[in-house]
Amino acid sequence: MFIRPAEADDEKLLWAMLYEASYAHENGMDSPDQLRDVPTLAHYVEGWGAAGDLGVVGGFDGVPLGAAWLRLFDAEDPAYGYVDADTPELAIGVAPESRGTGLGTALMSALLDAASEKYDAVSLSVRQENPALRLYQRLGFVEVAGSAKANPAGTTSVTMVLRFH
């Protein structure tokens, strides 16, 4: 397994991992390219490498199969797990063939280590039935009171936050 910092050249991989993370296939999308037409999702990746962006890429045998990244959003254009303008929101995606291998945990750990040196907290949005919810809890994320929201797929998502300081 390898983990390395995400670079501007990784934008295509981030689109692919956002496709996995956002349940886009379940919502009728056939390709990561279609995410570009969904502003509430596109802003997680569009123009990757801007000030404040931080991420890691990982995989096996030199093949990138997952990524975890975070970005700052503002109240005028919030993301799903928006807490405030000083708290970046984390996104993570792992290719289906690499789930259950520990790659997601390794990506999260590496990103959170890097984030703790730059930010006071990190937030995320997760579906309540997503198995990754348990990972987030183990890593110290706690649900933001009153954050449960129904989403278009008929499931409920919650915002979680991890405070470093």
Rank of each mutant, 00 (worst) to 15 (best):
F2Q: 07
I3A: 03
R4I: 04
P5H: 12
P5T: 14
A8E: 14
L13Y: 06
W15S: 02
L18S: 00
L18Y: 02
A21K: 14
A24P: 12
H25I: 05
E26T: 13
D33N: 10
D33A: 14
V38T: 11
V38L: 12
P39E: 09
P39K: 09
T40E: 09
G47W: 01
A50I: 09
A51H: 14
G52E: 06
D53T: 04
D53S: 00
G55I: 02
G55N: 08
V56W: 14
V57G: 07
V63K: 15
L65R: 10
A68H: 05
W69N: 00
W69C: 00
A75H: 14
A75T: 13
D77L: 12
A79Y: 01
Y82F: 13
Y82G: 01
D84V: 09
D84N: 13
E89R: 11
A91Q: 11
I92R: 08
A95I: 02
E97C: 04
G100A: 06
G100L: 00
T101M: 01
T101S: 03
G102M: 01
G102Y: 02
G102R: 03
L103A: 02
L103M: 01
G104A: 08
T105V: 15
M108R: 07
S109G: 15
S109W: 14
L111Y: 11
L112Y: 12
L112F: 11
A114F: 09
A115D: 11
A115T: 06
S116W: 05
E117W: 06
E117K: 15
K118F: 00
Y119M: 10
A121I: 03
V122P: 00
Q128T: 10
E129L: 14
P131C: 03
L133C: 02
L133A: 02
R134D: 11
R134I: 07
R138L: 02
R138E: 12
G140L: 12
F141Q: 06
F141N: 06
V144I: 05
A148P: 07
A148D: 03
A153F: 10
G154Q: 03
T156Y: 12
V158I: 14
R163W: 14
R163T: 14
F164V: 08
H165Y: 08
